[in-house]
Design a protein around this nucleic acid. Structure first.
Lengths: 373, 373
DNA sequence: TCATTTCTTGTAATCGATTACATAATCGGC
DNA sequence: GCCGATTATGTAATCGATTACAAGAAATGA
């Protein structure tokens, strides 16, 4: 295989442009320090020689690492892909490399993150993991990395780092309001894992809105989950066994909703005819699930972008005059997994039997359900 | 926030150990060049000072980037998470940083990859994307990166780069054999996207085994898909509309199987009672899907590890005396989405009616299906 | 016209490691 | 007790950029 052609250095450019390496460097980093004429000459030389800066040299001299680290709780969760895309995009223009690590398969020791900073392997970090220990964070602060860490989606309670997240409570409210508008009164909620900040925010939003609307609240309607498909499936079993069965369920994540729906269908219920289900996140799959999932959309791409921008800002301005908190708006996406509750439809039916056919057709159309003759 | 404490350099260590910086460097990279006594002295000094090598400096001097790039077709696909974990683990001991890029959201231009090499931003690359253009690869070779690229799972036909992959054809054969053993004769296949090497390998394995077993082959039983949930859903519609409906379907990916099962159920069929479904990949979700999916397991963790090891080997030995190809074994995982075909069970039933109840209970047990009274 | 400020550019030190080369010390063998 | 081989260590060059400082040129003002 061929040898590398020729590593062009800043000196080669300097020679061809008949200037010093300092001037070339200035053209690169601070063009207005250089006169118009030499500037274009240098730029020409750069083009002619095909010069590219050597990042290792630049990083060494500038005492930076030229990289940022993204801490992802579990790369396998489809939820994170769009966010990572947004982050990549946010760093695209910069000369930072984006390192990604999975904190589930590579658990973070207390010293690990601080170690990355201390060894100048990274200049900053974005954590999608709210489970970073306070000790780990304290160590980072000790190493002077205190204002080069940004939290995204999740965060650590009681810490002062900037947080970019969706308006989780509002998402929960939107979900409940939607179900209420459809006529549901008995609404259950499958939560995230205990201690997770998202669990808290979404549950609080749910409870708050339920209270505001004067909806009944049974303790068993708050079902503990953990954002996983399995926990949705477990929730389905619980719901199937309930005497006071809810007519709608708001899930803390789309994956939970999938598990729930599968479990409910396996238990002989129909979604949304017998029970409506709302998710949270709007991952790719949600639109093509059967039935297509009504859910709360987080703008994952935007979340990633914003976090990247905030971190870039902090890396640029030592003072750190960047926003310290941002809650991005969420959006209700109505699809086929929600419908008016059956008792309501039955009522309507009793008043006007002609609506039965219409109502059922409508449901079929949206879910694709149909029963063989 | 606190200032960084003090960047300890190799000179600090040298001073405390009363040796030269060269000796310290040798202790670090080639300990047996140094006498026992000074070696321990230096190691002590390293411990005392809390010294850590500065990668930027080392990389500059050694003319390396200290990073490798992983090209992932779509980070959102759960399939890749385990692989990435394996790759990370494979590079854990080394001092290479692992960069990850999503080739779907950041499409790779012809010059992009070569550019990374040319700018010495990376020392090597692992591509999970078989869609890298030959021109792009040629450019990399030009830049001397020809033997620092490894393909994983997918590959580019007609190129000579090392390939680590699962034994895809064997996986397909296992799937067909399993269905055949259960008694299925009419077996359909939902393929991957046209032109994908995995599509070809799996379809060939399927067709080959079907031929070997003397099973019937209808053209309409080969259904074009694209590894997506939607394509599974589409396939379900096709199958529902067939006059000569297969009794089992082998899907080229688990996601396809999920879409297919959802579509079939929505169409009034039961899985596996009316139709059996086999997937490919064994992603996390497959075990907890309802019904739990029978599938072909790829050892994703091992795939990642092996690719990392091969690339590390190539980066270490200039000659490139590392394996150039490896097909890792796959494994059939039997779960609840496959069962003997209904005609077979009906036959059995006719001979011995007592088996009906047993047979149905058996199916219920595995799928969790049950019909309300 | 001369002093002073402002632009433009070059010289050389610097970032923190690695390593070719030189030198000093040690060891065997005869 | 001398010589070549081996081992251990130090000196200094080097990787390729950035930038403090200096200095010459041009512009400004009195």
């Amino acid at each position: 295989m061929g040898k590398p052609p020729k590593p062009t250095t800043i000196l080669d450019v300097a020679r061809t442009a008949r200037v010093s390496s300092a001037t070339v460097s200035r053209v690169l980093s601070n063009p207005n320090l250089v006169s118009q004429s030499t500037r274009v000459a240098v730029q020409e030389a750069i083009r002619d020689t095909g010069y590219r800066v050597n990042q290792a040299a630049r990083n060494l001299r500038m005492q930076r690492a030229g990289a940022v680290l993204i801490l992802v709780p579990n790369l396998g969760k489809p939820f994170y892909s769009g966010i990572l895309a947004g982050i990549s995009e946010g760093f695209a223009g910069s000369d930072y490399a984006v390192l990604i690590t999975d904190t589930e398969s590579n658990p973070l020791q207390d010293e690990t993150l601080a170690g990355y900073f201390r060894d100048s392997r990274i200049d900053g970090a974005i954590s999608l993991d709210g489970g970073v220990s306070s000790d780990a964070l304290k160590l980072c602060v000790t190493h002077g990395a205190g204002d080069r860490i940004v939290f995204l989606c999740e965060w650590v309670e009681g810490e002062v780092f900037p947080v970019i997240s969706s308006d989780n409570a509002e998402g929960a409210r939107l979900a409940i309001r939607h179900l209420h508008d459809l006529g549901h009164r008995k609404i259950a909620h499958v939560t995230g894992p205990d201690g997770n900040v998202l669990t808290t925010a979404r549950r609080q939003g749910m409870v708050q809105e339920r209270g505001r609307l004067g909806l009944p609240a049974l303790p068993e309607w708050i079902i503990r989950g953990d954002f996983s498909l399995e926990s949705g499936h477990e929730a389905a079993k619980r719901i199937l066994a309930m005497s006071a069965r809810p007519t709608a369920v708001f899930c803390s994540a789309d994956m939970v909703a999938f598990g729930l729906i599968a479990g409910l269908i396996a238990g002989g219920l129909r979604v949304p005819e017998d029970i409506s289900v709302v998710g949270f996140d709007d991952i790719e799959m949600s639109g093509s699930y059967v039935p297509a999932l009504t859910t709360i959309r987080q703008d994952r791409h935007q979340l990633g972008r914003r976090a990247a921008e905030v971190l870039l800002g902090r890396l640029a301005n030592a003072p750190g005059q960047t926003p310290t908190e941002a809650a991005l708006p969420v959006e209700l996406v109505v699809r086929a997994s929600t419908a008016p509750p059956s008792d309501l439809r039955d009522n309507r039916l009793m008043q006007n039997p002609a609506q039965l056919k219409f109502g059922e057709e409508g449901a079929n159309e949206r879910t694709g359900h149909f029963r063989p003759p």
